[in-house]
């Protein structure tokens, strides 16, 4: 099975220094596990692909278990989609993995979808686990939904899958892996710079909605919404018999729908 992994130039969440994007390293782990255990007789290969002006700290991915990294060199302002599409088409990959969204660039998470469109392949979002499907040439993807729920999807390969942060943690970094891995540099064909019609300014955190009262609600309702959640304002039982306490707790949990009704 030939797997391609898309690596974007990220920035560290706290320090802002160039760094690999954590979710892409998690994708690398999924790819490495899949290639190792289910690669077939030929064994699976995982190839990293990055389109950008320089490779920088993305070589760290080699230390996290990537064997081969292809750097498609292009100017910083160029659109990476055409170069990546060409490279992915030429590579004949069965599976293409990408992160849910980058961290340090536009961070829209749109690139995998444009690539899927350009390649004419199906795309599945938010994978937390990958396994080969029951039939040959299919892949079973566990999609992370909110609150720990999952959805198991079976898709016919070739396909493109984006990975969710709920996937297992990246493989630990090994310096020997970094020394062993190879980086191959290719010049990408020049492409038009991506249109950029946004204005940028330093980030200013905006106040989040706290009170759950709606905009048109009355002042009394807004006050209630702001204060009720903060205080329990509930029921108090002092020294009940254990049986009574248990009954009360179960009834309360059922009323809230936190445990299954009887």
């Amino acid at each position: 099975m030939r797997i391609a992994l898309l690596l974007s130039a990220g920035r560290h969440r706290v320090s802002g220094r160039p760094a690999p994007v954590p979710v892409e390293l998690q994708a690398l782990r999924l790819a490495a596990d899949l290639a190792q255990t289910h690669g077939g007789q030929s064994g699976g290969t995982v190839t990293g692909l990055h389109a950008g002006p320089e490779i920088g700290p993305l070589t760290d991915a080699l230390g996290h278990g990537l064997g081969h990294l292809v750097h498609l060199r292009m100017p910083a302002e160029a659109d990476p989609a055409p170069a990546l599409t060409a490279a992915l088409e030429a590579g004949g990959y069965d599976l293409i993995l990408a992160g849910r969204s980058g961290q340090g660039g536009e961070d829209t998470g749109l690139l995998p979808y444009t690539l899927a469109r350009a390649l004419g392949r199906p795309i599945l979002a938010d994978a937390a686990a990958l396994a080969p499907g029951a039939e040959a040439g299919t892949l079973s993807v566990e999609q992370a939904l909110g609150r720990g729920a999952r959805r198991r999807l079976v898709v016919r390969l070739p396909a493109l899958v984006t990975v969710h942060p709920a996937a297992p943690a990246p493989l630990p970094f090994a310096f020997a892996g970094l020394r062993r891995g190879q980086v191959e540099m290719r010049e990408a064909a020049p492409s038009a710079p991506a249109p950029h019609e946004v204005e940028e300014r330093p980030y200013r955190p905006r106040p989040k909605l706290i009170a759950k009262a709606a905009a048109g609600a009355s002042a009394a309702e807004r006050l209630k919404a702001a204060t009720v959640a903060a205080s329990g304002g509930g029921k108090l039982l002092v020294d009940p018999a254990p049986e009574e306490a248990a009954r009360e707790i179960l009834a309360h949990l059922r009323a809230l729908g936190l445990i299954a009704p009887r």
Partner: peptide, 17 residues
Amino acid sequence: RAGLAIVADAQKVMPAL
């Protein structure tokens, strides 16, 4: 803080539950 607060020994409430 609790919406339902029970002042009782947890060691007795847990087996009862």
